[in-house]
Each structure stands twice: as C-alpha cells, then as structure tokens.
Design a protein around this nucleic acid. Structure first.
Length: 429
DNA sequence: TCTGGGGTCCTAGGACCC
DNA sequence: TCTGGGGTCCTAGGACCC
C-alpha cells in the first residue's frame, strides 16, 4: 500500500511577510503581483474580507483603507529563501520528497510505521513553525490526489491540528461528499462546469463516476484523477527535478509602449534573462518565440496581439545571439500605432548545452562565447545583475521596475509601506 | 488610470510517407 | 475523377497547476 503526504505552507507569501514583521500578525495582509497589479496571496483575515485571489488591487482601495489591510509588493528573493528553509526542515523528517512548488511538497511515507504517522507529521509541523515561523498543513492519503484532499481538510478545520488523514475506504465517503469537485486537484473551472452539468458535484461523485465517460469528455488525466480518488495511484513521487522544457521571461508594462526602440530594449532584456536561465540549467534553445500584445482590458483601444518564432540552426544560450534574434523577430510583428501592454520571450526545444551539434566552422566562436557568458554570469552573480549587460538593453531595464513603482497611482502610497528583506529586516526606503 | 508570471501535459488535425 | 489504410511527426490550442 502506498502512502503520500502533501505539505503546504499556509498563505505562504503573507506568512513570510509576517515572519519579518510581527506587528502585522492577526491583521489582514495581501501580497501583490509583480506590477503591484493584483492580489496573489492573502492572510486568512484578508480572505474573510472577501478579497479574491487574483483580484486587481485598484478594486480594493476602499476595502484596504476601511479595514487597514496591510499591502506588500512581492519579494521573491525572500520567499525563495524561506521555502528552502521550510522544506529542508521537512526533509530532515521525511527524506523522500518531491518539491512541487514554492510552497508545496509531496512526501512518500511508505517507510513510516502507520501508527507513528500522524504523530511524526505533527512533530514535523511544529518544528517547521518553530524554526522558520511558517505554519504548514499536512494531508495524508494513499494517493497524491487524496493527500491533496486531506490537506484541504486540514486547512478547512482552522482550529484543528493542521494534520489530516484520509483513506480510500467507504468510511471516507461522507467526507469526500463534503468536498466540492472544484477543490479536487486537477479540476479547473472549465472541467468543473462540464462535470456539474452531468451531476458530478463532489469528490465522492467523481470517485464513483464512470471512467470511460471521464476519459471521453475530459481526458486521460481526468480518468486518472477518479482512479486516484478510489485509492489507486496514477501519479508517482518524482524526486528528481527534471530540467525545464521551456523558459519564459515576460512582463506587463506599467505604462503602455508605443515606441519601437523602447519595446526593443524590453525584448532585449527578456531575451538576456531567458539566456541566463538557460545557462543556469545548462540548456540551449532550439526555438525562440517573441510575443507582444496590447491591453486586453481596454476594448476601447485598437487591439493587436501577435507572435513570431525563430528556429535556431545551432541551439544556443548565448546572450547576444538570442537578443539579436528576439529583436529581429519583434521587429517583424511590431505595428506602428498600437499601445503595447505586454511582451515576452520564450525559449523552447531545449536541449543539453553539450554536446552541441556544431557546424565545423562555428566551433571556435562557440567556445569563445561560452567563456564570455561564463565571465558575465559570474560578474553579475557577485556584483549584481546587469552589471554586465547587452548594449541593446540600453541604459538598463530599470525603466520596467522604476515605472512600476513610479506609477502615478500607487507610488507614494505603496512605496512608503515597510518592506521585509532578507538582509535583516531593513525598513522603508 | 489601475488587471501577474512561469510552467506542464494532452489532443486534434494537418503534412507527409508508404 | 473516383477509390484505402496506416503510420509518424509536428504544431496550435486548450486545459490544468502554483
């Protein structure tokens, strides 16, 4: 019999902010997306105010003022570091772990004696809280999907121990019938709509649904999800993180761009960042895609979205090469007279950096490029990113971030808010 | 005036081949 | 002009996740 756990940090980004600023304990806290655009994390108090996930912050101004909601821009450097601390603690208790996201991990509990399970999970949970300040919930079940369900139950029971266990016997059916189908792992809103139309409203309904029907009307994943709810594992623990198959760097702009030179500098910086990521995992890109679009929320303005794809004869992670292709591709889809709100660069058809298929006469150039990129990465790592950068990025890409924070609406207000940093909680700016 | 970013997997359909 | 079957590979689009 297999046994899995899912460890999930509660309201992760909001909890991280609280670790470094206890004064916001018990107050509603929201953390905003990159552009200070929408809410990406909420404390329980913020959820209780009805603040939705992904809600644009400009819709919440009154609520924020009335209830003294604490607002933070996201600080991914901090969250990455906290995540590392939390899950190395988890792994010291349960070594067989799959990192699933910045705030979640699956565990394989096959080796843990059944009668000690809940006790050791509870001990692990309180240790994580003590060592890192981050509260986590633990769900235990015979499949990943059921562990997810159990985690949902652990969270739902606010006054409970933070650890819940579920099995696949009929004893658990009553519990499964209390879980909305949309809360089942792998069921998004479109599939939910389709399932509810056919009378499948709860996790129990899904468990009892006809697998062939699911296979036909959803897909193989839908059928496997039902199987997992019946306690038959369809998804295994994956401890080795596979190299990425695609790498994307993109941004929404704080201010629309209607000037080619400016867009070109943005594309150059996206390509340069993507190239860095490629080198991080020792991959080279065989395909590069550039995409641009106007503001999809502005039906009153001319709309335009397009993308251009470049096939690279020799896969590469060389910054100048990728920057050049990104700008050329961008130029092909650029249209005068539109206000562009978002753009991005995607690298795909990734393959290992070596051995690379080289044209005979290319070989020397590539060796030279590798050495230059290596020096550039080392300097940027130690002296700050963009210390060495591509000339086509202009005087830096600071305009992206600077504009974010200088946006006429939020600047004064958000920038005055205290920020928690990993360098010891330095405040304000 | 303000609406995130970065991923994965599956399927249908077209192109092409024998 | 009509008429077959089967295979592979690739891509676009749709769905999902956090």
């Amino acid at each position: 019999m297999s046994l899995f756990a899912l460890v999930d940090c509660n309201n992760f980004y909001a909890s991280c902010e609280r670790v470094f600023d206890p004064s916001i304990e018990r107050r509603p806290v929201v953390v905003l997306s990159n552009n200070d655009g929408c809410v990406v994390a909420r404390s329980n108090e913020a959820k209780a105010l009805g603040i939705g996930m992904g809600q644009p912050v400009f819709q919440l101004r009154d609520l924020i003022r009335e209830h003294g909601v604490v607002v933070r821009s996201s600080n991914y450097t901090l969250y990455d570091d906290m995540s590392r601390r939390v899950f190395s603690t988890v792994q010291s208790f349960f070594p067989a772990m799959e990192s699933y996201s910045i705030d979640e991990a699956f565990l394989d509990l096959d080796e843990v004696p059944s009668d000690e399970l809940v006790d050791s999970a509870t001990t692990m949970r309180s240790t994580v809280l003590q060592w890192t300040g981050i509260p986590v919930s633990v769900g235990i079940g015979p499949t990943k999907t059921l562990a997810k369900v159990a985690n949902h139950l652990a969270k739902r029971d606010r006054a409970g121990p933070g650890v819940a266990r579920i099995d696949a016997t009929s004893r658990s059916d009553l519990t499964l019938s209390s879980v909305d189908i949309g809360d089942v792992w792998g069921i998004g809103w479109r599939w939910k709509r389709k399932l509810v139309e056919h009378g499948i409203r709860t996790a129990l309904d899904m468990k009892q649904a006809d697998e062939r029907w699911l296979r036909r009307h959803l897909n193989i994943i839908g059928a496997r999800t039902a199987r997992e709810l019946r306690g038959v594992p369809a998804f295994q623990l994956d401890q080795e993180p596979a190299p990425k198959k695609s790498i994307v760097r993109s941004r929404s702009f704080a201010r629309p761009i209607d000037d080619w030179d400016e867009l070109s500098r943005a594309l150059a910086s996206f390509a340069a960042r993507a190239a860095e990521k490629l080198r991080d995992q020792q991959s080279a890109a065989g395909v590069l895609t550039v995409y641009v679009s106007t503001n999809r929320f502005r039906p009153d303005e001319p709309r335009y979205a397009n993308h251009a794809t470049v096939r690279l004869l020799t896969p590469t992670n060389d910054t100048p090469t990728l920057v050049r292709h990104a700008r050329e591709a961008g130029r092909r889809i650029w249209r005068e007279g539109f206000r562009f709100k978002k753009a991005g660069v995607r690298c795909s058809a990734l393959q290992p950096q070596r051995p690379t298929q080289l044209h005979l006469f290319d070989a020397l150039d590539h060796e030279r490029s590798d050495r230059i990129m290596d020096v550039m990465d080392r300097v940027n790592r130690t002296m700050g990113s963009d210390t060495i950068r591509s000339g086509s990025m202009g005087t830096g890409t600071a305009w992206i971030t600077r504009r974010e924070h200088a946006s006429p609406r939020y600047t004064t207000r958000w920038n005055e808010l205290p920020e928690a940093r990993t360098d010891g909680g330095r405040r304000g700016r």
